[in-house]
Design a protein around this nucleic acid. Sequence first.
DNA 1: ATATACTTATCGGGCATCCGATAAGAAGGC
DNA 2: GCCTTCTTATCGGATGCCCGATAAGTATAT
Lengths: 99, 99
Amino acid sequence: MGRRDECCDMRGMLSFLILFLLSKKAMHGQEIAEELEQRKGIRPSPGTIYPALKALKEAGFIREQKQGKTILYRLTPQGERALKASKERFCKMFVGVYS
Amino acid sequence: MGRRDECCDMRGMLSFLILFLLSKKAMHGQEIAEELEQRKGIRPSPGTIYPALKALKEAGFIREQKQGKTILYRLTPQGERALKASKERFCKMFVGVYS
DNA sequence: ATATACTTATCGGGCATCCGATAAGAAGGC
DNA sequence: GCCTTCTTATCGGATGCCCGATAAGTATAT
């Protein structure tokens, strides 16, 4: 059950968060990692972020766009639909949690 | 990655949700399962809910109170602290997700 | 007491997530 | 070319969440 004052580690939300972040603007991997660091407190390792991106790509939710040294990830229309659906589930699930 | 329009299964939030529900009012197991069913769409099986309750109890976050046939679960002060901390992490993590 | 119905509990296993370490690729400086 | 630096990618492994099936406990009814 993790550290002393934690009831869960909130796994299983990474893809959702990534999709959400990419819906705000297209980003490359390190940018996503940085944003996640601000939100979660710890920076996800490359072994976390890139497999997640790969899975999202294979699901057709994001696509890549080479940009010099880096790769820009952005949502596909299908990814937007998936985010919309997941967001609804999320909101229904956590009604009232926001203080 | 689950069904077609899903980016993640939102696992890893069960303990958090249970703690949150119990902060509203003390409940017994089936009541919790029922509430979770409304929020998630599917009813968690006994094999899901009771191990979770057990872990929360062993962590000192909830305590039991026999009530005839059923057991009433309620938060401990430590559980309230844990919920508060987790809630803060949760809110920081998902700022802006609520449409 | 026996049966029934309901709640609570346990066990084994599957599966996705996540991490650390390591490698591969790409650009720029010398 | 070669070295450095940064980004991207892969692999093995560990964790832990969750489920289905099954068992155990408890009260009520007949």
